[in-house]
Design a binder for these strands. Structure first.
Lengths: 251, 251
DNA sequence: CGATGTGTTGAGTTCACTCAAACTTAGTGG
DNA sequence: CCACTAAGTTTGAGTGAACTCAACACATCG
């Protein structure tokens, strides 16, 4: 395993990659508003593995931006199972769906030791009215989020188990790359069960497809460790997404 | 078939139900900005059945709000099939995912004779900076949209064919009700194929489940005409969604 | 009144599921 | 330090829900 293979927990995202970078490191806004911006973030708070950031059905007064580590969010279904709605990597936002009525529609849990920026909605509302660039950025992020879910619809509605897992790995790979990490070697922070619940598959199926990919020489998998050998083939298997579709699986 | 059973094409949504009502009928803004608002909507334009509002991959310079009729939007998959990402009823917005980079990620087609309000993004951008209430409304709509897609993920990832169709019909029923139409009797404007492509099923499966529902006395179905007899049972079959989840299937 | 598009029904198949068991790793306490 | 447990993962066998392929029925329309 070479150079920049990392566990996310060991690294902190650069603020320039952050979804709401305008909130704390104002690049596009003038100095007059800078002190204002500094006050938006309530706290950069550490989150232990398994800790709950927001809980389904509870009041939601903040959104969160991941700084390091990884977070999963999920909704409980009626039959007791859970549907994972997203895995959040550094720089990605959590809780956008709760802005409407300030109530959480899903539960967010840290998959490993992580840290997040908590952004109180009240202060964000106040601030975005004063800083148009921030408003635009937020709108952009939400639009991107909607696009992402539309791609997930195609994945869940029309793709086979192999295609789903390939698309998932390809997405992760790209997101690691964007963050300066290795695209071909990484550790999964989520369990097979989480992956299955995200892809709409059974755990056993996820495991079997991993094994098949390994046997085919497409990649090497050892529990959480993944080494992709043939990225082109993986992209093909995933259904050859266009660059814009590669953002799948975030949020 | 009693009183208020209608085809959407025959009716125009009240502006108070419109997703961006602030855009054209300013209730929450003062009179000073009213003339401003009137100028945002480029045109209330009629759309013929089959007409394309926006096309995948093309530049997108507007979003649309349905006034009457119904619109479907879909993405083409690699294998030539299409995945319907949403059916839009009067008052619902189309094209929110394109705000980010002003390019369409899906194609939108009228299912019947319809009319829409076209809202140019440039003018909307300009206007929302001047009218905070409009900004808030837009943010709310996008947040709701994200919530909606999260619910769709559960549907596509974890529900059976019966549950999917039940949830679909229950959602339609509620949306008709909200618009003052009958919740128990209505006409479908989309084909079985469209429904199948939206629910991630085969056409034959949709047809079979419709038949089963009819045989069970849950509803009467005659091609496009639907009469729901047991709304409680339908809600149960759909997975007993909470009121907040009932907005599923819009956008 | 055929022609065409749309919807339904039937037969057989398959992919992913469930159930069950073995195995692996990590954590815990004697 | 090792036995023991619990949690997570893999593998196998059999099943079933939804799919595909194919034929048929029914509208709508020129």
């Amino acid at each position: 395993m070479s150079g920049n293979v990392v566990k996310l927990a060991e690294n902190v995202v650069e603020c320039r990659n952050c979804g709401l970078r305008g909130m704390c490191t104002p690049a596009s806004v003038n100095k007059a508003t800078q002190s204002l911006l500094d006050n938006v973030i309530r706290k950069r708070r550490p989150v232990a593995r398994g800790e709950v950031l927001m809980r389904y059905g509870m009041a939601q007064n903040s959104i969160y931006c991941v700084r390091s580590g990884s977070i999963k969010s999920f909704a409980a279904t009626d039959d007791g199972h859970e549907m994972v709605t997203g895995f959040h990597l550094p720089g990605e936002l959590i809780g956008l769906a709760g802005i409407n009525d300030r109530s959480s529609n899903c539960t967010a849990v840290a998959l490993e030791t992580s840290s997040v920026c908590e952004i109180p909605l009240d202060r964000m509302d106040e601030l975005r009215r004063r800083v148009p660039e921030l408003q635009d950025e937020l709108l952009r992020m939400m639009s991107l989020n909607i696009l992402h879910y539309q791609n997930l619809m195609v994945l869940l509605g029309r793709k086979s188990a192999e295609e789903r897992l390939a698309a998932f790995l390809f997405s992760l790979s790209n997101r690691f790359k964007q963050r300066g990490f290795s695209a071909s070697e990484f550790y999964l922070s989520m369990s097979r069960t989480d992956i299955a619940n995200f892809l709409g598959l059974a755990v056993e199926t996820v495991s079997r497809v991993f094994t098949r990919f390994d046997e085919d020489g497409l990649l090497t998998v050892q529990r959480k460790y993944i080494h992709i050998h043939d990225m082109t083939k993986l992209r093909m298997l995933a259904g050859n997404p266009t660059p814009r579709q590669q953002l799948m699986a975030q949020s």
